[in-house]
């Protein structure tokens, strides 16, 4: 059981300045581990301001945590040598949200495939490189003769994003962090792209951290889900129970607000925050208290810890204070392993 990438009590604060500027605690004491195997899909779900983008940046090493560490194969990211850093880039890849911005308009789309082949030494000759590109493009359902040699503006958003998945396949990382990979892609192509990501995991053994605001697609492809609210984990665990029987009031609100494509299943009635909840300040206590229909006195005093309500789930809510607290262990200790979900799905 080797740990590939680990977030160890990571917190990130933005905006501390000389003068008393408003500081923003984007991520609050987050701990999670991704193992090298088995390959799993973990979704991190949250709205804007939840901290999910910050988490992505911190995991990818784009920005350093204010406190805590990100460890790659046991070593702190900030202490990696040049060689180790290259190995990190090889093993941990990214798929960005915007399929337009991610291509340099000066080059044809081949460029995004040729660059990693060159830098990571994936082929020894031009012919071999070409074969490799054809192979991965076909694997994601694209026709090489229609994609290679084109400029980015000549392809649709869906095609461009699929080329990004092909690129990830090319590098054969051990972990892909996908930050809202389909939110800017048309609905009819979303399923195809998500399916190819799922294939990457099941067939090629690449783990995936799927960051999104869309709880439904998160449910469809992930083994485990982490729900973030304003920098803290609201709920986490196996995907099925979280979506079918959400425990945290925020998750319940989230699921209830999703517009179902069925005119007979209207939005569930909106619940008003409780009287106590309405008097909550932003300084202390549970971050969700001001919107929570179940807020109690204790919710205003201190932010709730993660209660382990079942072997495979935790919820940060005093409603479950009778359950044991998951004190120091990282989130993944409540995750299910993919074999279990394989059997349950389809």
């Amino acid at each position: 059981m080797t740990v590939l990438l680990e977030a160890h009590h990571v917190s990130k604060v933005y905006g501390s300045g000389l003068f008393k500027r408003e500081t923003n605690l984007a991520l609050d004491d987050f701990s999670m581990r991704i193992e090298t195997e088995p390959a799993s899909i973990t979704a991190v779900v949250g709205e804007s301001g939840s901290g999910k983008t910050t988490l992505a940046r911190v995991l990818l090493g784009e920005t350093g945590p204010t406190s805590g560490e990100i460890r790659f194969l046991g070593k702190d990211l900030t202490t990696l040598s040049r060689q180790e850093r290259k190995a990190f880039r090889r093993d941990v890849q990214v798929i960005f949200q915007d399929p337009y911005e991610v291509y340099n308009p000066f080059y044809r789309v081949d460029h995004v495939l040729e660059t990693p082949i060159l830098k990571f030494g994936l082929a020894t000759s031009k012919a071999q490189a070409r074969d490799l590109m054809v192979e991965v493009l076909s694997a994601v359902g694209l026709r090489p003769e229609e994609t290679l040699g084109r400029y980015p503006h000549q392809l649709s958003g869906g095609q461009r994003q699929r080329i990004m998945v092909a690129r990830a396949l090319l590098v054969r990382p051990r972990l892909i962090i996908a930050d809202e990979p389909v939110s800017m892609v048309d609905a009819s192509l979303r399923a195809t792209i998500l399916d190819s990501l799922r294939t990457l995991t099941r067939e090629f053994g690449v783990s995936l951290i799927y960051i999104t605001h869309d709880l439904i697609t998160a449910y469809q492809i992930s083994d485990n889900i982490v729900v973030l609210y304003r920098g803290s984990v609201a709920e986490a665990g196996a995907a099925e129970p979280i979506v079918q029987a959400p425990e945290h009031p925020y998750t319940q609100l989230l699921i209830g607000s999703i517009p179902q494509p069925d005119p007979d299943r209207m939005w569930s009635p909106e619940q008003e925050p409780s009287t106590i909840g309405r008097s909550a300040t932003r300084i202390s206590g549970c971050k969700f208290a001001s919107r929570c229909p179940h807020a109690m006195e204790m919710c205003l005093e201190q932010h709730p810890p993660l209660y382990q309500t079942e072997p495979n789930r935790v919820a940060a809510c005093y409603l479950y204070r009778d359950a044991p607290v998951l004190s120091v262990a990282p989130l993944d200790s409540v995750f299910v392993s993919p074999e279990t979900t394989e059997a349950a799905a389809d």
Binding site: L60, E62, K86, R89, R90, Q93, V94, F96, D98, E101, V102, Y103, N104, V112, T115, P116, K119, F120, V171
Partner: peptide, 13 residues
């Protein structure tokens, strides 16, 4: 700050 520059970093440049 463009994404394609960030991507280039992830490609080992």
């Amino acid at each position: 700050e463009r994404s394609y520059v960030q991507l280039a970093r992830f490609s080992g440049m």
